[in-house]
Design a protein around this nucleic acid. Structure first.
Length: 224
DNA sequence: TAGTGTCA
DNA sequence: TCCT
């Protein structure tokens, strides 16, 4: 870990080899499980494509009408939506007028195991947001607070192109730590950090053997 | 912050 | 108010 140039940004640099699986603490209750999902990545991508056939990726707009750069879909009992009506979870994919696809068993197992590894037992998500990041796509610093249940953690799985993850504090003014998330990395945060501000810096153009020119992210939540 | 927003 |  070291500071970068004239900013006070805390940058975590990882010097371990690519195959190393290990837990890297970001804060109290927040950890990166490095390469945790690597062995399941091909299966996960197959499942993602099956889900997206049923519930296609869609560009979302903030309640103010501005476009988000990521493309989104969901699976599970609840799917996340954003439009002029606001942020919310629904049982149905409005574009398909049918329920969101189920969360595959392998996803449930991965999410539950990762949560347990991070110290959160019995995590049973009821929603999985699927975000697709193309070149330049980003997510500004925000909190996940549309859920009802803040006692359960967030489990985030990175696939394909890497991205700089921003992990801040409970208030927006706290300068976030920056961490480069790579294919197979899983981030878990909860407890005192459940409502931490977080985001993703613009994706740098690249190619990944499994996902091509994009990054996929799965975010598991317990909404209700 | 606060908003005809996708080029404010 | 997960955008600017």
């Amino acid at each position: 870990m070291q500071n970068k140039s004239d900013t006070q940004t805390l940058d975590l640099f990882d010097d371990s080899s690519d195959e190393d699986q290990k837990a890297i603490p970001l804060a109290e209750g927040a950890v990166v499980l490095r390469r945790y999902a690597l062995d399941f990545a091909e299966n996960i991508m197959d499942e993602i494509h099956t889900i997206l056939d049923q519930a296609p990726l869609k560009k979302m707009y903030t309640p103010s009408g501005l476009p988000m750069s990521v493309l989104s879909s969901s699976c599970g009992q609840y799917g996340w939506l954003s439009d002029q009506q606001g942020y919310r979870y629904t049982h149905h994919d409005p574009q398909q007028s049918k329920p969101w696809p189920d969360i595959p068993k392998s996803f449930m197992q991965l999410a539950q195991n990762a949560a347990a590894q991070a110290g959160y037992q019995n995590f049973i998500p009821d929603s999985c947001l699927i975000n697709c990041y193309r070149t330049g796509a980003k997510l500004s610093l925000h909190q996940d607070k549309d859920e009802r249940d803040f006692s359960q953690p967030i489990v985030s799985v990175s696939l394909g192109l890497s991205a700089i993850f921003l992990f801040g504090g409970l208030e927006r003014h706290i300068r976030p730590l920056r961490y480069r998330l790579e294919h197979g990395d899983v981030v878990v945060w909860g407890g005192a950090t459940r409502l931490a501000f977080h985001g993703i810096e613009p994706i740098v153009a690249g190619q990944h053997p499994l996902t091509g020119d994009v990054r996929f992210n799965l975010t598991f939540r317990k909404v209700f």
